[in-house]
């Protein structure tokens, strides 16, 4: 079983093609789109979490490569230092993908690590510097 986050770069000519839907249809993989956007040069960028058997995962990656998608793995991880986090909530409106969620009863801030795309924006905006980059 593998569970990996990858960054996909779609060259301009591939942006309109249903590559990800084929990937999912033809392979036994669970997926989660963490971020999808089109850059200024009209290239597609997608951060994807893929989960499934190693064999299926490898086949899926091979399919993407063949289709012309450039793949990078998310080698860096952003984690929260639980000792330093004060649960202030300053990060909530800063994270571009909504990783931080307010629990309205305890008023604690949930860090939903699985959604994180390791963009690093929260690292310098967290006032007590509780968010850390790990390689």
């Amino acid at each position: 079983m593998v569970d990996k986050k990858i960054v996909l770069h779609f060259p301009k000519r591939l942006v309109d093609r249903p590559i990800v839907s084929h990937l999912i249809k033809d392979h036994d993989l669970e997926f989660n789109i963490l971020k999808a956007s089109v850059t200024q040069d009209e290239e597609g960028l997608m951060v994807l979490e893929l989960k499934g058997k190693q064999e299926e995962y490898d086949k899926g990656i091979a399919y993407l490569k063949e289709a012309g998608v450039i793949i990078e793995s998310l080698s860096q991880n952003v984690i929260r230092n639980e000792e330093r986090c004060t649960h202030c909530g300053a990060c909530i409106t800063i994270c571009p993908v909504g990783v931080f969620e307010l629990d309205t009863t305890t008023r604690q801030i949930k860090f939903q690590e699985k959604k994180c795309i390791a963009c690093g924006i929260c690292i310098k905006t967290c006032p007590p510097r509780a968010m850390e980059l790990h390689f």
Binding site: T86, H87, C88, G89, A90, C91, I92, T93, I94, L102, T104, T106, R107, Q108, P127
Partner: peptide, 21 residues
């Protein structure tokens, strides 16, 4: 504390700098 306020007809997400917990 609900997480959103309305200003000038726009929904604006809120964040606290002090820790309630």
């Amino acid at each position: 504390k609900s997480g959103k306020i309305t200003l000038q007809g726009k929904k604006v997400p809120t964040a606290s700098l002090s820790s309630y917990p």
